[in-house]
Design a protein around this nucleic acid. Structure first.
Lengths: 114, 114
DNA sequence: CTGTATCCTTGGCGATACTG
DNA sequence: CAGTATCGCCAAGGATACAG
């Protein structure tokens, strides 16, 4: 998403800072990842099972992006077999209200469509 | 956004209904359009000026999509020169809390980045 | 003023196979 | 278990010109 402002297009001067947030939570699958992590820390394969249909490539892509955005923390557990635990950072937890609000209207939109 | 479930991929069985909402507000520019319309009804060219950098094609695309989603109302004013007024429907106004929540964290993310 | 019509580019995502 | 490596598709957007 957000291909706008690609070239030398001047950014809008005074707009709502909504895109900063959507660039974080906007990708396909991304909301689901945050959703599951908000409940509890989870390992890679747990997320893979939780989020039915996501490919490992996309999952790592999203997790790396979220980590670089500072909303997800990645911790390697030195066990055998190795496992990696993902969790939301404090910053990531601040996304919760927005996610909840979106879920809220999402439910209503879904009800209306059916 | 949301290219997932393109082919014969089975949709996730039990997920948060967030995508129903993001498919409405998720496109580039879309949040801004809703943002400006939530303040007051606006005409095509007003939106074009408000949202600096959007092309007329994309603006009409988004408005048509939003209209078909039932969140935006389009009314042709029989004046000379002709003008068209866009406004949020009741359903569209229900998106406001979600937008506000997103704006809220958007501000914080922006502050942190700077 | 309010859009349409074209053409083109891009990057997000899917699928699959492979690795430490 | 937790990823990486490739390859390729294709719809969302950008640029620009034109139309009612």
């Amino acid at each position: 998403m957000l291909k706008q402002r690609k070239n030398n297009v001047e950014p809008p001067p005074e707009e709502c800072p909504i895109n900063e947030c959507l660039s974080v939570i906007g990708g396909a699958w991304t909301p689901n990842i945050i959703w599951y992590l908000s409940a509890q820390p989870r390992r890679f394969s747990e997320l893979r099972n939780d989020i039915h249909g996501i490919s490992p490539k996309v999952l790592t892509d999203r997790l790396k992006k979220l980590e670089s955005d500072g909303v997800v923390h990645r911790e390697v557990m030195s066990t055998s077999p190795p496992s990696v635990e993902y969790s939301l950072t404090e910053l990531g937890k601040e996304l919760k209200p927005a996610i909840d609000a979106i879920v809220d209207v999402g439910k209503r939109l879904k009800d209306i469509k059916e």
